[in-house]
Design a protein around this nucleic acid. Sequence first.
DNA 1: TTGTGTTTTATTGCCTCC
DNA 2: GGAGGCAATAAAACACAA
Length: 229
Amino acid sequence: MNRNQIDDEMTLFSQLHPGDYGQIPPPPRGLKPRRRRRRGRGGVGEADGVPGGLVGMKKRKLSDQQVMMLEQNFGSEHKLESERKDRLASELGLDPRQVAVWFQNRRARWKNKKLEEEYSKLKSLHDSAIIEKCHLQAEVLKLKEQLGEADKQIHKLSSALEEGHRKCREGHDGVNGSNSPSMTSISTEPLSLPPGFRGDLAYELDDMMLYMPENSCSVQCMEWLSHYM
DNA sequence: TTGTGTTTTATTGCCTCC
DNA sequence: GGAGGCAATAAAACACAA
C-alpha cells in the first residue's frame, strides 16, 4: 500500500469516527514547523564528512541475501543495539549506517502495516455493527406494524362487544318488559372499558368480561364476538 | 520507449534519554 | 551534549501500462 492509499484510508477512517479521529492532533509541545530540506543532486553522499557517511557511493539496492539476513534479524528483534549493528554490517559487507537505516525504514514499514491491520479490524467491527443496527431497525418496524394491527383488532372487538351488549339489552326489553325481575340488576350505564385499555389481547378480553354488567347474556355476546374473530 | 506510480534506500531536522 | 529514534521527505530503482 502506498502513501496515497494510506492517506485515503485514514481520511475515510476519520470520517467514520469523527469523534475520536476526526481532528488532527495538535503538534507535540515545542515542535516548530519543519523547514523544507534542500539536498544537492548526485545521489547519496555526505559532503560535510559525517563519520560513517557514504561519500561518493551511488544509492544501491541491497541483494536478496542481504535483505533476507536483515529480515531475519529484524524478526528476532526490532531494535538494533550498536554491537549487533556492527556485527551485522561486517557480516553483510555493508556500512553500519546502512544497517541502521535499513532497520529504521523497516520499523516504519512495520508500523504502517500494524496501523493498516488495526484499521481493517476496526472497520470490520464497524461494518458488523452497522449490519446489526439495520437488522434491529427492521425488527422494530415489524413489531410496530404488529402493534398497529393488534390495536385495530382490539378496537374492532371492543366495538363488537358493545354492540352485542346493546342488542342483548334490547332483546330482553322486548320479551319481558322493563319491569322484568330478571333485569333489575342490569346496569343501564353504557359499557365502559377500563382506562388505558391496550395491550395483551387475552388478558384484556378477560378484563372486559369482568367489567360486563351482571346477568348480561355472555353467550350471546360471545356469539357476536365470534363474527369478528 | 516513455510516462507514471510504487518501493526502497538515504537524508534531514527534531526530540528524548542517559 | 551526544547517540539513537522517528517523521517527513528526496531521489534512485523498479514495475508496468500505453
